[in-house]
């Protein structure tokens, strides 16, 4: 069994920035969909997609929240687009200590696009559903993969990692123990 190739479905969102009208419906629905309970609040600052927009330079670029990076990166780029020089981080999708993008506004916990994984699964991720101008489209492609895959870092793990980074392992464990205790009361 071990060495067998397996067919896996890869979910992909294709971004056609030329079709983006800058409406931010994707941001709004993403934030609402991930609210607890679902749709109970809207706050685009919690979205796992962000539309970088600079209308006067005709820049509309939806970016998905990527990996959490515990440290700022060293080598950086600058961009010049339509005559304006952009901040070196302007188009990056990482949740990174240098800025507030892709972090929960209150706790600062990192956010990452989870493709709206839910049970039962959605036909299409929410941001794609509301983007009826087709800047975002969804596709599933079958790819062959080796059985053994690196375990996916889940949201929870990501969050914990960030907390540990921020407050240290001890402090984080203490808080968790306290919360567990109060939960049982």
């Amino acid at each position: 069994m071990k060495d067998e190739k397996k067919v896996k479905i890869v979910k992909r969102i294709k971004i056609d920035a030329d079709q983006c009208n800058g409406c931010r419906a994707c941001e709004a629905i993403c934030a609402a969909f991930h609210a607890e309970p679902k749709y109970s609040s809207v706050n685009p600052a919690r979205a796992r997609i962000h539309v970088i927009h600079d209308p006067l330079r005709d820049i509309y670029l939806p970016v998905y929240a990527g990996e959490y990076t515990p440290a700022e990166c060293a080598g950086r780029n600058t961009y010049t687009l339509n005559g304006k020089e952009y901040d070196e981080c302007a188009f990056c999708r990482a949740s990174c200590p240098s800025r507030d993008l892709f972090k929960e506004p209150d706790s600062g916990l990192p956010l990452k696009c989870d493709m709206c994984e839910t049970d039962p699964p959605l036909e299409e991720p929410m941001c794609v559903q509301v983007c009826i101008d087709d800047a975002l489209t969804y596709e599933e492609v079958e790819v062959e993969v080796e059985e053994e895959e690196e375990a996916k870092i889940e949201d929870l793990e990501l969050g914990l990692e960030a907390l540990i980074k921020k407050y240290g392992l001890d402090e984080t464990m203490k808080i968790m123990a306290r919360m567990a205790a109060s939960e049982q009361e």
Binding site: A32, Y39, S40, S41, N43, P105
Partner: peptide, 8 residues
């Protein structure tokens, strides 16, 4: 900040 909905 969050904007809340009564019957989500």
């Amino acid at each position: 900040k969050d904007l809340n909905i009564a019957k989500p």
